[in-house]
Design a protein around this nucleic acid. Structure first.
Lengths: 229, 229
DNA sequence: CTCCAGAATTAGTCATTCCTAATCTGGAAG
DNA sequence: CTTCCAGATTAGGAATGACTAATTCTGGAG
C-alpha cells in the first residue's frame, strides 16, 4: 500500500535516538531517560530535551518520569535506519574486505548518508540477505522484521550442543576476541560447564575448550541443536 | 613522509566551503564572498561568518573586502574531500549501477561520511583510477593532483577534431542531455561551426550533428586531436 | 506516613550554521 | 574630488543539539 511515504529527512542525531529507543523497547517496554543516555553516551539532560522535541514531532510518546516508546512512525524510521545499517555492514564485508569487528563504526556513519536507492542496490547485489554479518535480521523495505527465537549462551543448560546465531556486540575488541576463538554466526558450540551466580562458562568450539565470562555469554545468542555427551 | 596527519574531523559544512573555495581559486586567485555564496547557495552574510571562523582555524586567509584563499592546510583538506568524492563516484558507477547523472548527489553526501580506510579500499578494487566518471582527475592520497591541460569546447576554432576529456557539470538534467547526444569522456567531437559573441556551436558526434549553446560548450573540456576537413 | 536517594526535568549556556536587515567600504564614474 | 553602488561585513535572531547546575518527582525504606 502506502508506497512513497515522503519522510522529511531526519538528522543523524534523531536517527540515532530512534535506533537506541527501538533497541531498548522490545515487547512494549518503555525506555528510561538514563538508559538512552547511557547507550548514546550523552548526558541525561540532553536526552530529556531531545525526547521532548521528538514527541512534539510525533516520533515517540513520552510519559514524564516514566519513559518513552516509539510511535508507529518512530518505529518505521528506526527500522529504516537499522535496515540501512545492516545492509551496509553486509555489503562492506562481502565486497570491500571488512571484517565484523571493523564494520560497525563505518556503517554507523554511512547509515545516515546513503540514499534509499543506494541501499536497495546494495541489497540487490547481495541477493537480498536476511541477516547481517553478526547474524542480526535485516528488516525488509516495509519495515517488517523477523526476529528468530534464540537464547543467550549464558542461559543454556550444560551439556548441550547449540548453533551460534547472533552476536549482539559492537565493540571491536570484544568482537575480535570472539572471532579469535572460532565464534561466528553458524558456529557449533557445546556448553560444557556453567557456574552459578553469573560465573564463568566453559564451552567447546571446533574441538577447543574456552572459558568465557557470563557477560560475554549473554551476547552470544544460540539455537539448541540437541544433546551431547 | 608525514604519514598519519591526525586531522581533527571537519564538519560537512566546512568541507563543503573548502571544496568550493578550492574550485574558485585556481592559480592563486582569491575567491569573493558572493562567489562562494553563489556556489553553495547560501546568503553572502553566512559566508562572511564562516570565512571568519575558518580563517581563525587556519584553514584559509581572508583579506576583508578582498577575498579568501586556502592555506596549505585548507588546500589539503579540500583535496582530501575531492579525492573522496571522485573515488566514490567512480566506485558507484563501476559497481553499483549508477550513471553519471545520478552519481553526483550520492557522492556529495557520502564524501562526508566515509572513512579513509573505505575510500582506499574503493580505490584499490577500482585499480587506483586517475579520473572519475566525468573525467575529473582524482588527487592522490598525499593531495597531489595532476590537471591535464584541456580547452573548453566553446573556445576551440572551427573545423577541428577533438577528444572530450572532462565534463565540468553536476546538474543531472544537463548531464542526461549531454550523454543523450553521445558526449562522454573519450568521445570524438568535431567542431563544425562556432558563432561569435557566445553564439551557438555546431558539433558532430558519432556522425550526428548537434547545435549546443555556448554555456554548455564551456563545460566540455577537450584536447585537440588534429585538423579535419 | 515521612523522608530520602536516584532518576528526570528545567534553567541557563554554548557552539554551529544558517537567516534577514542594516551598515560599511572601496573603487569607478562623473 | 566627491558621490554612489555593488559587494562585504556586522548586528541580531532562530534552530539544533550538546553541556552543567539546580530543581523536582517518584517510589521504596524505615
Amino acid at each position: 500500500m502506502n508506497a512513497g511515504v515522503q519522510h522529511e529527512p531526519l538528522t543523524r542525531s534523531v536517527e540515532d535516538y530512534l535506533k537506541a529507543i527501538y533497541r531498548l523497547t522490545p515487547e512494549g517496554r518503555a525506555a528510561g531517560t538514563s538508559e538512552i543516555a547511557n547507550l548514546l553516551e550523552l548526558a541525561p539532560a540532553s536526552v530529556s530535551g531531545m525526547v521532548k522535541r521528538l514527541s512534539e514531532h510525533g516520533l515517540l510518546e513520552h510519559v514524564p518520569y516514566k519513559g518513552v516508546q516509539l510511535t508507529e512512525e518512530g518505529r518505521r524510521a528506526a527500522l529504516r535506519t537499522i535496515r540501512r545499517h545492516r545492509l551496509i555492514e553486509a555489503y562492506l564485508v562481502a565486497f570491500l574486505g571488512y571484517t565484523w569487528d571493523t564494520v560497525h563504526d563505518e556503517a554507523e556513519r554511512l547509515e545516515h548518508a546513503v540514499s534509499d536507492q543506494l541501499v536497495e542496490r546494495m541489497a540487490s547485489v547481495l541477493g537480498h540477505p536476511s541477516v547481517d554479518p553478526h547474524g542480526d535480521p535485516i528488516p525488509d523495505v516495509d519495515g517488517a522484521i523477523h526476529e528468530p527465537a534464540s537464547t543467550p549462551l549464558s542461559e543454556l543448560p550444560e551439556g548441550i550442543l547449540v548453533e551460534l546465531r547472533r552476536v549482539d556486540e559492537s565493540d571491536p575488541e570484544r568482537l575480535r576476541y570472539i572471532a579469535s576463538i572460532g565464534l561466528q554466526p553458524g558456529a557449533r558450540v557445546i556448553v560444557v560447564d556453567r557456574q552459578p551466580f553469573h560465573g564463568p562458562i566453559t564451552i567447546e568450539v571446533e574441538g577447543q575448550s574456552h572459558v568465557i565470562g557470563h557477560e560475554l555469554g549473554h551476547v552470544l545468542r544460540c539455537v539448541p541443536l540437541g544433546e551431547d555427551a
